[in-house]
Design a protein around this nucleic acid. Structure first.
Lengths: 182, 182
DNA sequence: GACGATACGGGATGGCCATCCCGGTTGTCG
DNA sequence: CGACAACCGGGATGGCCATCCCGTATCGTC
């Protein structure tokens, strides 16, 4: 690959990460090109569709989060690992509108894309959850989809990432509800 | 107002209610006109902008829900009134994608529209909440916006309205978390 | 240093959609 | 019944956006 091509590709990725994070997934490709300082054609050539940009960025971000899940699973006991991760991921979603859109299903199907590209983004989360359930720390009738949905509730956009107090309050509420107790 | 105009207006409202409920707020105006059996011009004349249709339908729907909140507030003790209402509204949102979009903030700001048109959709909910808090049934650091946000989490669209079991599970989780306990 | 391959820019294209417009129609009132 | 105002339909308009295209510029190699 030619040097300038690689350089532009990296610029585009950097610009897209930032643009998605601040504006959400609906940011125009044109705007990403502008931020990257390249033409729209250059974006299209590196990433033929907007969805391929989603794949490159969102799935990569989720991989990072899953790595975090795995290291938490090793270092902590199941209960704290799960709840720490929940908080960690919710915070990530609150400061990254693109991630929040993806989790909320806004026009991008994470699970389908992960499958298509061979990533395993659900696995790490599922392991964390089932371990916590086996340890009796989480109600055992919930599944990862429930968890994801409840998390998106903590990401309500109307107060932005600013109101961290409200967010941690909501996280606390959901985590309390998730704890086993019958 | 001429008889045919009134008839068409009603048809449009009926069609729009159904279209929003099944397709969400992003359904094209054209599609609403088609369902109503009128031309797109007729829709535009009765409702100059799409948002005026939102106002007519969503705010009206919310009024109904607020009425329900008020009657629950009279009939029940504060705690059950609040939690009943939460469940009632979440179920409403699950079967009405338009309502879910509006609650989730998908391109329509309920609070602003309510203010602009003079409706008081938040009031009933707020009363219910503060009453429940005074009765010690709900943590007193949450506000209506939190409640609304957590509710949208229970409305995750990816399983549609079909999976009622998952929904009531999530409602249970959130309500448990909302209960006071320190 | 020159040449072929590769990549670039940004205008052109086409789809989608809300809103506007106007020639034709229909209800209403005298 | 007749005339006129009100209303109707749906095509036209314009904005937004992803994607494609092609003349031009740049890279890497010989």
């Amino acid at each position: 690959m030619r040097a300038d091509a690689k350089r532009n590709r990296d610029r585009i990725l950097t610009a897209a990460i930032e643009a998605f994070a601040t504006e959400g997934l609906s940011v125009p490709v044109h705007e990403i090109a502008r931020r990257a300082g390249v033409g729209t054609g250059t974006v299209s050539r590196h990433f033929p569709t907007k969805e391929s940009l989603y794949d490159a960025i969102i799935l990569h971000r989720l991989e990072q989060l899953v790595d975090r899940a795995r290291s938490l699973a090793e270092a902590e006991e199941p209960s704290t690992a799960f709840f720490e991760f929940f908080k960690y991921m919710a915070d990530a979603g609150a400061t990254d509108h693109g991630l929040a859109d993806a989790l909320g299903g806004g026009g991008y199907d994470v699970a389908a894309s992960a499958e298509r590209t061979g990533y395993d983004v659900m696995g790490g989360m599922r392991d964390l959850l089932t371990a916590a359930q086996r340890a009796g720390a989480v109600r055992d009738d919930v599944d990862v989809v429930d968890v994801k949905a409840l998390m998106t509730g903590c990401l309500a956009r109307e107060r932005g990432a600013t109101d961290a107090a409200a967010r941690s309050r909501m996280i606390e509420i959901v985590c309390t509800g998730l704890r086993a107790h019958r």
